[in-house]
Design a protein around this nucleic acid. Structure first.
Lengths: 230, 230
DNA sequence: CAGTGGTCTAGACCACGAT
DNA sequence: TCGTGGTCTAGACCACTGG
């Protein structure tokens, strides 16, 4: 068998047999154990990382992935509730709030004929202190006056409903597998080049008008999507 | 800027400016151009691969990804129709057909009280001659007697409906990002360790009985998921 | 056959983390 | 300060592809 596959197998078994383990041995310990080099050891590690078995924190080491959050993008379930049902401790942190002019992409999404102003909510969500998702939420400034002063680390849907009488009735999502942009990688405390599931969601009201436009980046090993169709 | 980032940028621009390009320069050409080594060149290439911009074929070289197939796992659309609407030439190839005894996982899925026999359809799907998905479909041998002799490179749903009067009414899917198992990588003509979107689908009839159990592995750069909710 | 990527060695220096 | 991973050099041999 290839050497990097042997190392991979060894680590895979190590993880399976030691459920309490949080962190892997260092790369140098491993290369010594297998009389090999860092290139080969890292081949094994990056493979396990792509599989979603381990993840790294910049210059801190390689860690074992906790269970994935199961999430249904179609059901309208609140993040906190979902996380708690699955025994995670959820946390949302507001990174920034801005009000800015639209760009082409967003004007088109909101069917704006002229340029306008949008609120941008930028936040990070964690499970058990591990950041696992960043999101950018855009909505019309004219429609959500005073949004800045609401509790933006909670459910935006609830704010829309309770404070603005705007209800989301349907939505569409696009999912692709790609790499986290570097500025988001920093916020998520993952390496440049880390894999992610990028989700672009458009949420509409009963008149088929776009209410908000969200771009989410989920750490790929932290999530499992579940979709039901009736 | 980091050298591998420079190489990445160069290739990214090269691809953007030459839409007709199918194949990248070889690793050795690149290392010469950048006065670097293969390790560094490959860092740039694997990054672009993870981003879904390029893909490799074992020992043949690095190729530029065509547009992704947009697919809605919730809508019951036939693969051929979907592909053609998006100007791809679809193809399905039967790899094998077997009838085998159930295992624990499958017995549970089919709510079997005793062990039984299952048909297993194993096939590969391509777009424009590029294999992009392998799937294993399991269904009850007792329910689909003679399935072996049907046109198994077409729509299984249609065979169920027309030949067996079994209608799929709803389904549930689980999606995770992971690595393609080595035996499937070979069929897909991709490298060991290639990324994929793994989809496990259960399809049910009107009585809530499992009709088939599918495991699909999609080449991650070949697909984009679109889901609508009402 | 020459050219490609796949795997591997044996080092190096650096920035950043934990202490 | 020392240990960690991040980046990089300068090679090597191999298996397989394509002409």
């Amino acid at each position: 068998m290839l050497l990097y596959q042997e190392i991979r197998q060894y680590l895979f078994a190590l993880i399976a047999e030691h459920p309490e383990l949080k962190k892997l041995p260092s790369e140098r310990e491993l290369l010594e154990k297998f009389q090999s080099t860092r290139i080969t050891v890292r081949e094994a590690l990056t493979r396990l990382e792509a599989e979603g078995v381990i993840y790294r924190q910049n210059r801190k080491g390689w860690f074992i992935c906790p269970p994935r959050l199961k999430w249904d993008p179609v059901k309208k379930v609140n993040f906190y509730q979902l996380a708690q049902e699955q025994y995670f401790i959820p946390l949302t942190k507001l990174v920034s709030f801005e009000t800015l002019a639209t760009n082409k992409e967003l004007e088109q999404a909101f069917s704006l004929k002229t340029s306008g102003e949008l609120h941008k909510i930028y936040r990070v969500r964690s499970l058990d202190e591990r950041p696992i998702m960043v999101e950018e939420i855009y909505c019309l400034a004219s429609q959500f006056d005073g949004l800045k002063d609401k509790a933006l680390d909670g459910s935006i849907t609830t704010i829309f409903e309770h404070d603005y009488r705007v209800n989301i009735t349907h939505e569409s999502s696009r999912l692709i597998v790609t790499v986290i942009p570097d500025d988001k990688a920093e916020l998520l405390n993952v390496n440049s080049g880390a894999l992610c599931l990028k989700i672009i969601r458009k949420r509409f009201n009963q008149h088929d008008e776009l209410v908000d436009y969200n771009i989410e980046y989920w750490v790929h090993s932290a999530i499992e999507i579940e979709v039901d169709s009736k």
